[in-house]
Structure formats: C-alpha cells, structure tokens
Design a protein around this nucleic acid. Sequence first.
DNA 1: CTGTTAGCGCCTTCAC
DNA 2: GTGAAGGCGCTAACAG
Lengths: 338, 338
Amino acid sequence: MKNKTTIHDIAKALSIDASTVSRALNNSPRVNQKTKDRILSKANELGYQRNLLASNLRKNKTNTIGVIVPRISRHFFSSVISGIEEAAYDAGYNVIICQSLEQLKRERDIVGTLLANRVAGVLLSVSMETNDYDHLLNMKNNGTPFLFFDRHCDIEGISSVLIDDVQGGFDATEHLILNGCKNIGHFSGPQKLSIYKNRLAGYIKALEKYKIPYRPELVLRSSLMEIDGTEGAKTLLSLPHKIDGLFSANDIAAIGAMKYFKNEGIRIPDEIAIVGFSNEPISEVIDPSLTTIDQPGFQIGQISTKLLLEEINKSSNLKKANKTILKSSLIERDSSRK
Amino acid sequence: MKNKTTIHDIAKALSIDASTVSRALNNSPRVNQKTKDRILSKANELGYQRNLLASNLRKNKTNTIGVIVPRISRHFFSSVISGIEEAAYDAGYNVIICQSLEQLKRERDIVGTLLANRVAGVLLSVSMETNDYDHLLNMKNNGTPFLFFDRHCDIEGISSVLIDDVQGGFDATEHLILNGCKNIGHFSGPQKLSIYKNRLAGYIKALEKYKIPYRPELVLRSSLMEIDGTEGAKTLLSLPHKIDGLFSANDIAAIGAMKYFKNEGIRIPDEIAIVGFSNEPISEVIDPSLTTIDQPGFQIGQISTKLLLEEINKSSNLKKANKTILKSSLIERDSSRK
DNA sequence: CTGTTAGCGCCTTCAC
DNA sequence: GTGAAGGCGCTAACAG
C-alpha cells in the first residue's frame, strides 16, 4: 500500500520525460505552463508525494536546521524555539528539535545524527556536562555552520547569541540593595557555564558598588532542580546572619526556596525579598509581586536563526566569530496588593 | 571544506570494495574482524561521516518517527515527549518534534514534510482547528503508520492512546461536591475536541449523581488562554447565584481565574474551591493546596511509542484500531497550612 | 568472507 | 521548451 508514485510514473502516464516532470514540480520557468498544469494535475491524481531523501541526496543539501537544547520543557528554551521556528519558516526551512537532557553523551549522539542527516546548520545551547568539545570541533571541520545561543563554548570562528548576564546579575542584586537588603544570598549554577559565572560576577559587582562585603558562604551552587532551592533555602537560614534578600540565577531553584520560606512562615518579600533570573511564567504566578529578570527568548531565537541562515548562504569562508549580546530586563510586577 | 569522504574513498584507500566497507560499517557478521578494524580506523582517519540520506533512500525507510503536538511549551505535551523520546531511543529510533501551534494549516504542512522525509511513523495530538482530516487520510492511504494521543479523531484503523476524561471530569466535580460546593462553574474548551466534551460530560454526570441541577450558564468555553480564565471568572461572579466551586478543564484558564479571584479579595479555597485539569506544575505552585487532576504524560508517551513501533514492524496489515484508555488521578495536595 | 552489479528517486548538465 | 544520460552515496542481491 506504500505510496510508490515517482516522477517516472507520472512521466510515463503523460508520455513525457521524467526530467520535465522534475522541472515542473520545482516550478522551473523553462517549462510550458500547459505541460506544467497537466503534470501537476496528474501528480495530484496519482497521489504523488515528493521524496525529499532523494532530492536532498542529489542536491547534497537540505533545508532543515537542527536545534539542540537541554530541555524543551524549560520555558526559556521553548520561547527561543518559537522564535527559531518563526524565522526558519519564513525562510523556507524546517526545524528539527532535539533535547540533550543536559547529558554530554546525548548531545554527541544528536550532533552525529544531525550531521548524518546533512542538516543545513545547527543552533545549540550546550548541556551542563559539556566540557569536551570534540563533537563540536568535528562539526566545524565538517563544514556544517552552527551557532551557540545562551550557553556557549569558546570555539574559534563560531558565533554566539548571548544575554548580558553580568548586567542581569548586577541589576537583580542592585534592585535588592536599593530595596534595603543587606544580606543577600545567591543561588548559582555550574561555574563551567559562563551564564552562571557571569551572573555571579554581576552579583559581586553590585555588592562592590554599594560597599557590601562579599561573603562566599551566601553563594550556593545548584543544578537547577527545585530540591536545590529548598535545600539552599534551608542552608541559608541556618547561617548566623539571617538573609534578607535572595538572588536566584534560575527560577526552578527560586520556586523551591519560595515554597520552603512559605512553609516556614517567612513573609515574602517583607522578610526576604527575591529576584529570580529567568522568564519562566511560573515565577510570576507563584507570587505576582515577584520581581524577575526577563530574558528575551523569542528574540534570541529569531536573531540566532537569521545569523545562521546568513552563514549557510554565505559561500565565502570569511566568517568571523560574532558575539551578539542582548540585554535582559528587570521586570517589577504590580505589587499594589501588598 | 565540506566533508566529502564516502565509502568509496575509504574502499580505495584500502584497495577493497565499497560494499565490504558498507558491510563493515553496518557491523555485518559476514566481514572479517581484521578488515573491519582496518576499515573502521581508516574511516576514522578520513573523518568519514555516514550519509543517512543515501542510506535511507536505498533502504526506502528511515528510523525516524515524527511527533506533532500543538505546543511543546505546554507541560503536558513536553512530558509526553519525554516519554516518547525515552521509548524511541531504546528502540534505536530518532524523534523529530514539530508544533502545529493549534493551526490546521501548519499541521497539514508538517504532515507533508514528514511524509516527504519518509518518517517511519507519526505520533500526533491534533490542533484545535483540525476539523478536516484530509491530510490524515492521505497519510493513512500513503501507508505511513500513525497514532493519536490525547486529542484524537475518529479515523478507521487508527489507534489512539487516551485519558479517561469523563472519569476525570467526574472525579474533579465530585471532589468539589463532597467538599460542600453547590454552585460549581466549569471552564470547558472547544467541543470539537473530545477531551473537552468528555470532561464536560463527567461534570454533568457528577451533578446528576448528587442531584444537583445542571445550569448551562455555569459552563464557559475557553480557548485555553489565561485571559479566558480572568474573563470567565468575571462572568461567573456576575451571575445571580454566587459560585462556590470551579472545575477548570485546563490549567491556563484556571490560573487566570485564580489571579482574578485573588485580586478581588476572594479567598481560595474557602470561598471558591478550584480543581484544575492538567498537570502543569504551575497550578501546584500557584497554590500548594490546590487539588488537581493529574495526567500521566510520560506514560502516554511511552505507550504510544511502543504501539507505534509495533505497527511499524508489523508487515501484516491486520491492524485493528485500538483505544488505550489511561486513568488520570486526583491529587489532593497538602493543605495543612490552611 | 569479499567483489560485481544494479539500482533507490531525483536533479542537472548537455544536447536538440 | 523538452529529452537523454549520468550520478548523488549507499545497500542488497548474486556470485564466487
């Protein structure tokens, strides 16, 4: 029952040559409109279904771009994906989405499969485990254009689209300070990832600006799970100086902390003010008065895609590594009900 | 710079035939281990990268399954996708994920691209706009196995993996009744989608069981946006009989309603109790005491994939349409703090 | 165990 | 404007 209609079948049915059919199907200007019409209607009649495998093989290129994210369920990434899809769709490209689940092994496998499928290019945000770049260097040598977004590696000639995390961390911390906080905790993440390193740097920079001593025991590393937030909150509360502010570099941990604080009967933000760094809508929902640092996911997706498409279409190898840095914005929500 | 190494290149370098190389690369038992080793190391040395386009074309099959969901950012769907990926990965299949964004046109395009790429099979949850099945019938005639999950259409010979929504709606409503609610509002969705029709049926069934008159004005259709929730909440509050309970068939609308109620100073659940039907973690977060109907997304993904793979591997055309019905569960969260 | 042969379905010169 | 011919990279008979 499998569809077997090929251009030859429809050529035979019309007593013409397959090459003409091919041209017609690709809407080549060098074919008579009448024959085009006949071909199209016959193709329809026979239930012809173009075989992209063959076409792509012959042309030695595809119009598919691969996207690798740690997890599609994270709001930031799914908003980036929306941006990617929109930009890709406009340019006539398909998108195939893959998740590394924060595992290096899976990231490697995925890169392999994408290359084997001859994708036109790849957009990726590396996993937390990615400290070995062989698979990426391999992709580079292979000649497949790719681009990092949000989480990147330093590889010569490879561009990135990033957020100004130092500034974001600074803004978050400054906001807490200006609201009277003096003992500010910080939930960070793996320092291998520059986003967490940079947010921490912003945190420290703000403390310095306001002459608040930096106390390392207030900085906790998490691995982006809710449990890290609850555990972290507990740890912070056990310190001699009680904290009055918390800057979390990711929302999931912030949520864990909020739950813990609430369970302990600690009022937010009166007793402990919190700023979360992410755009999970969840943080807005948990407490509508919560201030967050918003990341422009959709925009990142669009920009990354446009840059990637430029590289794909650029036959010249003059590509210079660009870093596009976007700004996040501090969003202070309505707190009139407080 | 594009990688051009083919099996012929490596065959030539070793003065053997390409077919042997092909066999070795596919780990055929009919190749001497020594030559295998030579081939593998040479392949590595030349930076050989298998071309799946050619391989798949030749074999006339791929090991890729396509997944179409309305939106990957909805938690239910991303948990289904996790389940799909796990099961597919175990069976040596790749997954390509696509979003219809609830648009029929996009759904059609996606089906077309997947077929053109000769995916081995497709798993899909239809868009809200899907009232025309041509593209699906086309896929069926084409001989590509597919399966619905969660949102399905009645197409002969096509199986579905569903949740018992009547029961879920009944459970939700009964829970409210048993907690003393007498005027229970219901946020429903497009009645084209059987999930919403069924949840409504469950709601009515529960009312009947407890001899509570069904009042149509308490049932509001939403299109799954937060704004529908706030508007709906407003509408319900404007009715002469004040509601004391709300069963929302989707969480997004429930969230909108909760925000509205909170802004109006209405205490939840004391004045209005709410049960949300979905497993967005968001509903748990907004109010840890909230009772929800939990849907087994991960499990649905796994089961769907296994069934699809069975159909793919079944050469016989004896397939009967199966409906696998899973149960959702009512989760009453800790409300000790109240 | 390994080589020979013949395509998979399509596109792209090159003729006319 | 259309046809003829060749090949993209790989695999699956069929031989030996």
